[in-house]
Amino acid sequence: MFDATLAATVTGDDVDLALSVENTSDESRTLSFRNGQRAEFVAERPESGETVWRYGDTRVFTMALARVEFAPGETETYTATWDDAPSGEYRVRAWTVAEDASADAQTTVSVA
């Protein structure tokens, strides 16, 4: 089983995001990925659900299968930066893009 938390730091109009994924079980667990992308981050307007920014839309990822093993209690952190975010309030969601398990989290961000 995996648990996730999402932290956001706003500096001017840039939003730094960190999705921390922890193996909360007593056994080693593995996540399998189809390419180099490990996590997806999406910013939405909370009132309408409209997607304003999506991390994966502006990236190219390597085409290589990968497996990441997590020991019991081990945490991996995946990061992204939303550059030049427009001012406003946003719901930011993030999740692993693994084929065999999922970990997701969300937070609220205010950009001045």
Rank of each mutant, 00 (worst) to 15 (best):
R29Q: 15
R54G: 08
V60T: 15
A105L: 05
S48E: 07
A66V: 00
E40P: 04
L17Y: 02
R29A: 12
Y55L: 01
D104E: 11
E27C: 00
Y90Q: 07
S32N: 12
T58F: 06
D14N: 14
G88A: 06
V68C: 02
L31H: 01
E22L: 11
D14I: 03
V68S: 05
S25W: 13
D100Y: 00
D104P: 00
V92C: 04
N23H: 13
A112G: 15
T79V: 09
T107Y: 10
T9Y: 05
G73T: 11
E22W: 01
D26I: 01
A4S: 08
S102A: 06
T79N: 07
T77N: 06
E40V: 12
A85N: 07
L19Q: 06
A103Y: 04
T5N: 14
F70W: 09
R67C: 01
D3T: 12
V109W: 13
A94C: 03
L31C: 08
A94W: 01
E69F: 00
T5Q: 14
L31S: 03
T107M: 09
A112P: 15
V42M: 12
A64L: 13
D84C: 04
E47C: 06
D3A: 15
S28A: 15
E27F: 05
P46H: 10
Y78C: 03
S32W: 00
T24Y: 13
V109C: 11
A43I: 01
P72I: 10
R67G: 11
V111D: 09
G49K: 01
A4G: 11
T107N: 10
D57K: 04
L17P: 02
R38L: 09
M1E: 14
E76H: 14
D84T: 08
R34F: 06
A39C: 08
R67M: 05
R38S: 08
E99T: 11
R91Q: 07
D104F: 03
F61L: 06
F41Q: 08
A64E: 13
L65R: 14
V97W: 00
G36F: 04
T96S: 07
D26G: 13
A94I: 01
G36D: 07
A43L: 09
A43P: 01
T24G: 09
D26N: 10
A101F: 01
N35M: 05
W53A: 08
F33A: 00
T81I: 04
E74R: 09
D13P: 06
A85V: 04
T81L: 06
